[in-house]
Design a protein around this nucleic acid. Structure first.
Lengths: 126, 126
DNA sequence: CCCGATACCTTGCGCGACAAGGCATCGGGT
DNA sequence: ACCCGATGCCTTGTCGCGCAAGGTATCGGG
């Protein structure tokens, strides 16, 4: 029955999505910075981290991993072990570590910039 | 002569843009939360705030203001004063203040989530 | 025996940021 | 007198991420 009168929460999802834009790359690369992982595992990990604010969907994750691989930031290997359904494990490369450093710098710059702006406005309101 | 071999900084602008996605609305609405402003002034203010990380371009700002106005979050009035070239002043509405609160909540949720993730990964690396 | 979880993938759409363009006014420098 | 940069507003077209929705296949439990 959510038909009309939904204009708030329907917008919330989009708002959240737009705000989080670009953070998927940082989150994924950060996790891979601590060790190799396969895609589905990354997805599940991010679903639980930070109350789900960093959750990314399959349609986002897999293309992202392919972009990172094409850019040379990560490498992929299929691993079957004993299982019939093999997993694709990703590992970060030196270039990927450089990129991760850059991303972290940009992210904290943005966070600090926004914090400074909001703080300045609060002072002003005094 | 920047022709090839530029693949680093050309990407940086896009990266920065994607990360900052959605923050323009928060920044603009925050400023308007402290008093009325006209568009060009908002642009100049954001250019200087936080070493330019929050800078937004004309092609972003004006459509954004129109979206906010359509949504009822801000109102606009042309003001001529004595000048020949009038300015369009924007002021936040009660609905806009609600929206601003929501945006700030979402933003800090994202920032905290990312901080928690990065902290957890650092611990893990111990 | 079927369904949900695991595990990978793709195509098409929505939407914000921007480049690049346009229009008009005003002040200062030459 | 003239031009140019800053002021001040606007629009159209393109780019690229995130996602919904769909597809394929295996495996375990009810």
């Amino acid at each position: 029955m959510p038909d009309t009168a939904d204009s708030g929460s329907a917008t919330l999802a989009r708002l959240r999505r737009e705000l989080a834009r670009g953070t998927a790359e940082l989150a994924v690369l950060s996790i891979l910075g601590t060790g190799r992982r396969y895609g589905y595992d990354l997805m599940k990990t991010l679903q639980q981290a930070g109350e789900g604010v960093l959750e990314i969907k399959e349609g986002t994750l897999y293309p992202l991993l392919h972009r990172l691989e094409d850019a040379g930031h990560i490498t992929a290997v299929w691993e079957a072990d004993g299982r019939a359904r093999p997993r694709k494990y990703y590992a970060i490369t030196p270039s990927g570590r450089d990129h991760l450093r850059l991303l972290r710098t940009e992210w904290s710059g943005l966070v600090n910039g926004m914090r400074d702006l909001l703080d300045a406005l609060e002072e002003e309101a005094t």
